[in-house]
Nucleic acid binder design. Structure first.
Lengths: 155, 155
DNA sequence: TATTGTTATACTCTATAACTATA
DNA sequence: TATAGTTATAGAGTATAACAATA
């Protein structure tokens, strides 16, 4: 042990242990950083992967509806859709009935890429949760949704 | 229901429901947005509140040790410490033994403000988790720590 | 007048390289 | 040469105001 280390104070993490929000943040940061690497081979980020998934399962939806589903503001979705379109994974088509709006749909390649990316993501999630009982993982999701619902109710 | 709404497609959130990372993100976003309002009266943000808490419980520690405890990079801590110092909540004092280093300690006001902010934070967390059984909340924290530990092990 | 998608903008969080002063 | 703190910078994520086209 060096002189510097000897003079160092042992850290008390009590304040952080009691701070649920910070533990949520730490876990989310791990998840996000990992996922970034997992999705990079597909040219996707967390938000574009999420958007593509919703579009694949709900072809024809509008950007405004998608933004609401993803819980992000409309302006923040634009560049994500630009990226997905540039990658050839989705199409934006004018709605004939309401020419202000677009219908979003996946290309065939978009469906394929999402399938592959989803498999990689699920493998990643399984690895992160390896050793966690299934019912604990279910509890995690239930409590996360409870927290999210509290926020949604307020806004 | 307007014409626009009639022509809209019903969104399928299956892709998001299966995406644990996104549900983690949504919950964290709610937590963070709320906490921002809760801590604003004290002049604190999530990161400065966390840093102050560790300093209060571990007076004398160094910025580098604090950054490690908070799981952030050293450069990102600097402005937070600047803010806390400007608020009169902490002191930076040169370590006599190693003049490269600083010892961080809370002022009396820092201890008081952290106490008040911590009470507000705990009330906020209790409100968000109202209706969640204590053992489910404990499971949440256990799984979050499990996820975070997986990331910590890799880096 | 309201809505859809968009642009512009700003603020926060995070990450990295490189500088200074000390060791 | 290595380390502590710092500066500078860049990239995401998030939020709001305001615009053009359309309703």
């Amino acid at each position: 042990m060096s002189v510097a280390e000897q003079s160092e104070v042992r850290v008390s993490d009590g304040a952080l242990r009691r701070f649920i929000g910070y533990r949520l943040k730490l876990a989310f940061n791990v998840f996000r950083a990992d996922l970034c690497d997992v999705l990079a081979p597909y040219g996707l980020r967390m938000i574009s992967y999420s958007a593509l998934g919703v579009i694949v399962e709900t072809p024809g939806l509008r950007p405004s509806t998608l933004a609401e589903a993803l819980n992000i503001e409309r302006p923040n979705l634009v560049s994500t859709l630009d990226d997905l379109e540039a990658l050839g994974l989705i199409r934006r088509e004018r709605d004939a009935a309401d020419r202000r709006a677009y219908a979003l749909s996946p290309t065939r390649r978009g469906v394929e890429v999402f399938g592959a990316a989803a498999a990689a993501n699920e493998a990643h999630e399984a690895a992160l949760l390896a050793g966690v009982p299934a019912e604990d993982a279910a509890t995690l999701l239930r409590v996360l949704d409870h927290i999210q619902a509290k926020g949604a109710r307020r806004s």
